[in-house]
């Protein structure tokens, strides 16, 4: 439990830190950190409750994609400011490193198994983003219809 709280704090800080590297506007830093925390929490809950790297990363990516567009609308800034720092805690850094290490040490079998894990995780995050785009389009359509309906009456 203690480790979990420390981890939450660390995830938030990592979002802010990445924001510092890529030169985010000052106003966006804090929100980017919270966005990272939200995406990681979704990932953490799913991977502990149901397991499965694919679905956890998928829903993490989906959550970050949807939320960052909402924040972008609210703050009137491009949504890319929020989703790039949000993705940082989900990046499969450990597996990628293990893959490289196994390649360098000449054990190709484990290298390929790590590599396929990396591809699988990255693919599911990307798929989460695609679905987030879809969700946003549907939401826009619904809002549009809603406004039109109001004007009719």
């Amino acid at each position: 439990m203690e480790l979990f709280i420390i981890k939450c704090f660390c995830v938030y800080l990592s979002g802010v830190g990445f924001g510092l590297i890529v030169n985010l506007p000052h106003k966006a830093l804090n929100i980017a950190g919270f966005n990272a925390l939200l995406g990681w929490l979704v990932y953490y809950v799913i991977i502990n409750a149901w397991g499965g790297l694919g679905s956890a990363n998928f829903f993490g990516g989906l959550c970050i994609g949807v939320v960052s567009v909402l924040i972008a609308r609210w703050k009137k800034m491009p949504s890319i400011l929020f989703d790039v720092p949000g993705l940082v805690p989900l990046v499969p850094g450990g597996q990628a490193y293990n893959a490289i290490k196994s390649f360098a040490m000449g054990s190709y079998e484990s290298a390929f198994s790590y590599l396929s894990e990396v591809v699988w995780i990255a693919g599911s995050i990307a798929l989460g983003f695609i679905v987030a785009e879809l969700v946003n389009k549907i939401r826009l359509r619904i809002e549009h219809e809603f406004i039109k309906g109001h004007q009719k009456f």
């Binding site: 660390c10 990592s14 590297i21």
Partner: peptide, 27 residues
């Protein structure tokens, strides 16, 4: 204005340090 180098350095340090804890449970 871009952030000065020392702020970027701190950012890089924070990213590295915190992600060790997140990925590897290594405080």
């Amino acid at each position: 204005g871009t952030f000065p180098l020392w702020v970027q350095e701190i950012g890089a340090g924070i990213v590295s340090g915190t992600l060790v804890v997140v990925f590897r449970n290594n405080l």
